[in-house]
Amino acid sequence: MCQLKLPGCTHRATQADHIINVKAGGGQYDVDNGQGACEPCHKQKTQQESIEARRKIRRIPKPE
């Protein structure tokens, strides 16, 4: 079962996801840093992490 349950979730986990992105300090091979995700949820989470990483590089303030 998908553990992210974001909008568009298919509820069937077909991919592995790092809870804390490896580049953000999460353990790549840490079993406790993993969760199941469906493809749509994994894609959404990855896109959001990418946006956040670019925002930090550019030092653009996060909209509130």
Rank of each mutant, 00 (worst) to 15 (best):
D30R: 10
N33D: 08
K5N: 14
H18G: 10
G25Y: 11
L4K: 11
R58H: 06
T46A: 10
S50N: 06
C41F: 08
E64I: 08
G27S: 02
Q35V: 09
H42E: 05
Y29K: 08
G27I: 10
P63K: 14
Q48C: 04
D32N: 11
L6Q: 06
D17H: 15
I20V: 15
L4F: 14
V31Y: 12
I57K: 13
K23Y: 04
V22T: 09
G27A: 09
E64S: 13
A13Q: 10
C41K: 09
T46W: 01
Q3G: 15
T14F: 01
G27L: 05
Q47G: 11
H11E: 14
E49W: 03
G34R: 02
P7N: 06
S50C: 01
C38W: 03
G36S: 10
K62T: 12
R54P: 00
D32A: 14
Q44E: 12
R54L: 14
P40L: 11
H42D: 15
Q28I: 01
C2W: 06
K23V: 07
G36C: 05
G36D: 07
R12Q: 13
H42L: 10
C9M: 05
H42K: 14
M1T: 12
Q28N: 03
Q15S: 10
K23M: 07
C41N: 10
E39I: 07
K43W: 08
E52S: 12
R12N: 10
G8C: 09
A13F: 07
L4H: 12
C9G: 06
R58K: 11
I60F: 00
Q28F: 11
N21I: 02
D32W: 05
D17G: 08
A16K: 05
L4R: 13
M1I: 03
P7T: 14
M1W: 02
